[in-house]
Computed example of a mutant assay.
Amino acid sequence: MAQQVYKLSRKSEQQLEVTKMENIVLLDTLQQLTTGKEDNCSMCEVDWDQQGASCYSFSKNAKSWHNSLDACTAMSASLVKIDTKKELAFLKNEISKRVYVRRGQQFNFNFWTGLNYDNDIGNWTWADGSPFSFQLFQVPGTEGCAYIQKGEIRLQSCAKWEVYICEKPAKFGGN
């Protein structure tokens, strides 16, 4: 009888270990789905491009920087905030695909980013108010708003009309 109890106890311990391992795998899968580690499990709206855990909309209509910010806000988004070199490379690649032709010549669009010079604090900030880090790229000046053209960050008056890039989080697992 003691031997049967021992065998049952041992079998229960083994089943418990298997259940623990299954739970670890399930927890890892759930974490990937909810944090965006698996791009193919996330969704962006129609006409939005996905990179990692973000969705991007490349506008076709030109607006001033402030009106571009308002347009992004109306879509529950913000002007793009570049956080990583991978994101910058993605944006450069996408921008290189978007050109227009005038009088037989091909031109690149200037796309507003969320970066602008805040005169009140005397520094560059993103549209969400967070400070800019010069580790990703350099900004050639101390006034205006930043745009990307041909993969280069450039500056000009925020009142000038350009197309723009909106960014918002991708939806995961039915969010």
Rank of each mutant, 00 (worst) to 15 (best):
M1A: 13
A2L: 12
Q4M: 07
V5Y: 11
L8C: 11
L8K: 15
K11L: 12
K11H: 11
K11V: 06
E13N: 03
E13I: 04
E17A: 10
T19M: 10
N23C: 12
N23M: 13
I24E: 10
L26V: 01
D28R: 12
D28M: 07
L30D: 04
Q31D: 14
Q31M: 09
Q32C: 12
Q32P: 01
L33S: 10
T35Q: 10
K37A: 15
E38D: 13
D39H: 02
D39C: 00
N40A: 03
C41E: 02
E45V: 01
D47C: 10
S54C: 07
Y56L: 05
A62E: 15
H66M: 05
L69G: 08
D70R: 10
D70S: 09
A77G: 02
L79P: 10
L79S: 07
L79Q: 05
K81P: 00
K81T: 12
I82L: 00
I82S: 00
D83I: 02
D83L: 00
T84M: 10
T84W: 11
K85Q: 15
K85A: 15
E87H: 02
A89C: 00
A89V: 03
F90K: 08
L91R: 04
L91A: 09
K92S: 13
K92V: 11
N93S: 14
I95E: 12
Y100K: 09
Q105P: 01
Q106K: 11
F107S: 14
F109W: 13
N110G: 06
N110M: 06
W112K: 01
T113E: 01
T113G: 07
G114T: 04
N116H: 14
Y117E: 03
Y117P: 02
D120V: 11
I121G: 06
G122I: 07
N123Q: 15
T125R: 11
A127C: 10
G129W: 08
S130W: 00
S133K: 12
Q135F: 05
Q135Y: 11
V139G: 09
V139E: 09
G141E: 08
T142A: 05
A146K: 03
Y147A: 09
K150G: 05
G151N: 03
G151K: 03
G151A: 07
G151Y: 00
I153E: 04
Q156V: 00
A159M: 08
K160N: 13
K160A: 11
V163M: 01
Y164G: 08
I165Q: 04
E167V: 11
E167Y: 05
K168Q: 07
K168T: 13
K171I: 08
F172E: 06
G173M: 13
G173D: 10
